[in-house]
Simulated scan of single mutants.
Amino acid sequence: MAGIQLHNLSKIFKLKEEDVVALNKINLNIKDESFVTIVGKSGCGKTTLLRILSSLESKSEGEIVFTQGNTVITSPKIAIVFQEPRLMPWLTIRDNMKLSLIKIKNRHEVNRRVDHYLELLDLWRFQDAYPNQISGGMAQRVALGRTLCYEPDIILMDEPLGALDIYNRKILQDEIIKIFENCKKTIVFVTHDVDEALYMGQQVVVMNNGNLVNHMRISESHSKDMNSHEMKALKRALTHSIMDSRIIRNDFSA
């Protein structure tokens, strides 16, 4: 497991002759073994932040520090789950999950990990199926299993449930929460859905126009009554932060 510290992290894109600020001097401290959701409108910088954390995008300035307890670590294992499952159509479910283990030569260890996560994600019966033979919700579960087989310290999730219907979305929300509680990974989960951010996160960070504008600690427990007065009040506050572009605050500890 690993924590993440961001110090004045910025990202500026060149658009013709104009500078477009995607991330504006962000300071954020995410503790290890925490589940943090990041919520905001499309284009607010959520995905850019994840891409920089996963080294898919370079930062313009600032510093990223990964920690384990009080120790700085240089090369944590980081995995990202996208909105699309990105499965190989010519491979079975089992073989798709093996893709993240391509560097491991010990076949026993490979099979042990795949067997474990096939069981955990209730995919055992479908291990010999191909991606075109399973539902969208199940395909996203395979993508999650492929990530878990890698056994990363940090899991980044970029709106992984955004394309699912409400029924499968709820099932996968609970699956991810169960995995977090069992495996105690550090999870950073990006969404544009306020209800999802509140339901899944122990802490919720709000982004707006490349800035961090709000942070709420929800609960260490994931047993939440979304119809309670407390959760409804939190939802109103989050929605206000998302909609009001005048709010700017870029320094938070999650």
Rank of each mutant, 00 (worst) to 15 (best):
F82E: 01
M138C: 08
Q83D: 01
F82M: 05
L212W: 06
E196D: 12
Q83A: 03
K98S: 01
R107D: 11
F82W: 07
M88W: 06
P131I: 01
D165A: 11
L144D: 09
I179A: 05
V194W: 04
V114D: 07
G162S: 14
C149Q: 06
T92L: 02
Q202I: 12
L172R: 04
F126C: 06
L198N: 09
F189V: 12
I134L: 03
K178N: 14
K103P: 00
T147M: 10
Y167E: 13
V188P: 07
E109H: 07
N211C: 12
R113S: 13
K178C: 06
D193A: 12
M157F: 11
V110C: 08
M200G: 03
P152V: 07
S135Q: 04
E175M: 10
Q173W: 08
P85F: 00
M88C: 13
Y117I: 06
N208Y: 07
K103E: 14
G136A: 02
V81P: 05
L144T: 12
F82N: 03
A143Y: 04
K103A: 15
T191G: 07
T186Q: 12
R146P: 00
R107E: 15
S100H: 06
V204L: 00
V81H: 03
D158R: 06
A129H: 13
N211W: 04
